[in-house]
């Protein structure tokens, strides 16, 4: 392919499969009968070019280079042509299936892009104008919080703690019931409490962990609900009012 004097730039591709697919489409190769020597040559040439331009080559590209060379070697070596069930053995089969599966989703991704662009041409009535009010009265626009949000928050709270005191040998026993009562006692007049305030109160890790477990238990018993204004924002614990 002397005609392709220009270089293929590795950084324009999503991964090794994307690059192989590009060669297949550009040179009109048959995906069911990939000329493995030719495609390997093209592939390695592209990697060499990237290396000479000091581009960091992702590990996946290197792994694929090895795979291609292994397939190429297998094609050259004498091998049985049929397996025990009489099916044709083709060292390329795995790569072929992988490429086909990838093609389907690459096409699906292109379809999604079209959908998103069409959608972008339509202008919707949305509640974006409520942002101003939101700032004045944050409590009104709280979102529901999932268990994953809660766990992620707990992790952040632990990481943001100053270095903990060395642990002394007496045992700190913080019971679940104690911590539950502590949380309920900390709720303000309106039955609200910020998660960051709750964590501040405790000094040792064990107290915090038990307090977190106590919070989960309170949620389970539907004594409190937890809200969050936006992603990574502080959590707000609300007492559930019965009736």
């Amino acid at each position: 392919m002397e005609a392709n004097a220009y270089h293929v730039h590795l950084e324009n591709f999503e991964g090794p499969l994307d690059l192989l697919l590009y060669f297949i489409r550009r040179d009109e190769m048959d995906i069911y009968d990939i000329p493995i020597a030719k495609i390997t040559e093209e592939y390695l040439k592209t990697l060499d070019h990237a290396r000479s331009s000091n581009i960091v080559i992702a590990g996946e590209f290197v792994v694929m280079a090895a795979t291609l060379m292994r397939i190429k070697a297998k094609m050259l070596l004498p091998r049985p042509e049929l397996d025990e069930e009489g099916e044709i053995i083709d060292p390329r089969i795995e790569l072929m299936l992988q490429l086909q599966e990838y093609t389907r989703f690459k096409d699906a991704a292109a379809n999604l892009d079209i959908l998103a662009n069409e959608e972008n041409e339509l202008f919707k009535r949305t509640g974006e104008e409520t942002i101003e009010e939101e700032e004045e009265n944050p409590g009104l626009y709280l979102k529901a919080v999932s268990l994953f949000d809660l766990a992620a928050h707990f992790k952040t709270a632990l990481e943001n703690r100053p270095v903990l005191k060395p642990i002394e040998l007496h045992r700190e026993i913080a019971s679940l019931d104690e911590q539950k009562n502590a949380i309920l006692a900390m709720l303000d007049g309106e039955g609200k409490l910020r998660f960051s305030r709750l964590i501040e109160k405790f000094e040792t890790k064990i107290e915090m962990i038990v307090a977190f477990l106590a919070l989960l238990d309170l949620i389970r018993m539907k004594s409190v609900v937890v809200y969050q204004n936006e992603l990574f924002d502080d959590l707000e614990i609300h007492k559930v009012v019965i009736g």
């Binding site: 999503e14 991964g15 090794p16 499969l17 990838y102 989703f105 991704a109 999604l112």
Partner: peptide, 21 residues
């Protein structure tokens, strides 16, 4: 997104094995 949309629910490993990265 396309892979998740058509095959959900699925793990990161399954997504990576299709995309190859």
């Amino acid at each position: 997104l396309a892979i998740v949309a058509y095959k959900q629910p699925l793990s990161r490993f399954e997504i990576e094995s299709i995309r190859g990265v």
